[in-house]
Design a protein around this nucleic acid. Structure first.
Length: 113
DNA sequence: CAGTTGACGGCCC
DNA sequence: GGGGCCGCCAACT
């Protein structure tokens, strides 16, 4: 039944990234089940079987910087898409402190600073 | 089947 | 502070 491969798990996570937020490869990897899949995540997105349903442009490195080998239109294209999502860039890198996707918000409430 | 690659991350120098 | 190397896992050839 579990025909879903490691890639499918990654795609599922990336697909859950809300608009206006970004997730790092390690973030996606951890959510997929293993924090050591960062490289595998990159590989999975590289094959990207569904770029229309999998917003790979919302996936950036932990530095909040887009990948250097973006094949779906260019690095600049990714920045443009993220800006359209409401993500703000600072000196060429995403303000991850504000746009890092947080699937598990605490009950304290005062988490968004 | 075994070796190499890969859109990363973290640690070392 | 910047650059380089190793390590993790799965997929590709």
């Amino acid at each position: 039944m579990e025909r879903k491969s490691t890639f499918d798990l990654i795609y599922d996570v990336v697909r859950q990234i809300p608009r206006g937020k970004v997730a790092s490869y390690g973030q996606v990897a951890a959510l997929a089940g293993n924090a050591h899949w960062a490289r595998v995540v990159g590989y999975a997105l590289h094959v990207n079987p569904d770029p229309d349903g999998i917003p790979c442009y919302r996936v950036v490195t932990k530095d909040g910087r887009p990948s250097s080998a973006f094949a779906f239109g260019g690095e600049n294209r990714q920045v443009e898409l993220l800006l359209a999502d409401g993500v703000r860039f600072e000196d060429g890198h995403v303000v991850m402190e504000e746009f890092a996707w947080q699937p598990l918000p605490p009950d304290d409430g005062g988490y968004y600073l």
